[in-house]
Design a protein around this nucleic acid. Structure first.
Lengths: 213, 213
DNA sequence: CGAAGAATTGAGGTTAATCAACGAGGGTGG
DNA sequence: CCACCCTCGTTGATTAACCTCAATTCTTCG
């Protein structure tokens, strides 16, 4: 997928500043006034929201090129947390919104996000626990689709805890753990340590997800 | 919420043509090449996607001002169906994408949609059946928030069938029906005929949703 | 070594899905 | 006009999936 600019060289480059965050840092809080729009240079970021009683839903996990902090009103509707060390470009919101060039580039990025959120809504509304976890694993492989197209096995690293994956997939951490265990028993995935590398048998995964998605 | 133009008077007005559809007509099919971007003038539209095995997820229900048919690639990722008689403005996609003015206006609309999809993801991932139906009823009242702010009772019309509501809320039609029955028993809502007007006791609804959202 | 955080696994409970029957309009054709 | 059918909604009984509670292990870190 094309990644529009929003970067140096563009006339709005002057509005941007680089920012770094350590792993697990909170970048924006829910409800906070929206002063900037952020683009990820390197690292990964989770975007989430809490219900008053503590239930959490993670909407998206963004990698390099991803954008967050966009809001229709003046306040962030969701929080953003660094999943790894992160380098960001921060664009002053007020100034950026006045630049039609910025908005046009942003529109392209938002279109892709919209599509991703549609995928995720299908997952949350209509897929079983194991299907959700398989979709998650496919996401992990992600653009690697290209580089793994002819491979039998992909190797990925799970950056999120079971609890975070659960809040992303609309499950509990126990159900996520059981789904991982089941897929491991079935030989779809393999790992020694949960924070180590995970191997994915692409053929088996495709066979399981191919039929229904 | 502000509704940016994308309308007559704008320099891209020449790219637009008006279209009418009868109730229940299919406006765009999933997978179809994306020739246009649509804005609703009047009426309501559902946007949805199917899994290969027939499971359906409805992403959003759009009213006047709503936009659909936006896609990051050349093909529609979802279908759109008229829920009522609908009048649309259709913007030629190729031409519109070249207009930074169009894209800028579109960005504002997409921001609002993004926020709405976040709300919906929380609903799908983290709310119980009755909570989902209550949220749906709140949506029905919608902007009426303003005009009903001092009222005790709102009167709304449910345009969707139980099956459509189920596919919107990630439930089965039976569960939706039971939730409606329960809320009726509890006096939160009232109706004689399912296709007739429905009264909503706003105080009771707020009391139930207020705590947890 | 002990404590804290994360994952796994088991047992049991709850919610929502599934299967099934029935009733209420609305349309169509005899 | 009425009988029939078809769609939609409601409700009940049962099942299955997932959640909750709880115990245990593993790893890391002080």
């Amino acid at each position: 997928m094309l990644q529009p600019s929003l970067s140096v060289g563009s006339p709005i480059a002057g509005l941007a500043r680089a920012l770094d965050f350590p792993s697990r840092a909170t970048i924006v809080d829910e409800g906070e006034p929206a002063r900037a729009i952020y683009r990820i240079v390197s690292g990964h970021v989770m975007v989430s929201r809490f219900l008053p009683d503590g239930r959490r839903q993670i909407f998206e996990v963004l990698g390099p090129g991803g954008v967050f902090g966009v809001t229709p009103n003046g306040h962030h509707d969701s929080a953003a947390e660094a999943l790894t060390e992160v380098r960001l470009m921060a664009f002053d919101r007020q100034a950026a919104e006045r630049s039609s060039e910025f908005n046009a580039a942003l529109a392209d990025l938002l279109k892709a996000q919209l599509c991703a959120l549609h995928d995720h809504a299908v997952l949350l509304g209509r897929k079983s626990a194991v299907e959700r976890v398989m979709s998650y694993i496919e996401d992990l492989i992600g653009v690697a689709d290209a580089q793994h197209a002819d491979d039998d096995v992909a190797i990925v690293r799970v950056l999120m805890t079971r609890s975070e994956i659960a809040d992303y997939l609309g499950l509990t951490l126990e159900t996520v753990s059981r789904a991982f265990s089941q897929l491991k028993r079935e030989g779809v995935i393999g790992y020694e340590r949960h924070d180590g590398p995970m191997t994915v048998d692409l053929k088996r995964l495709k066979r399981l997800t191919g039929r229904n998605l």
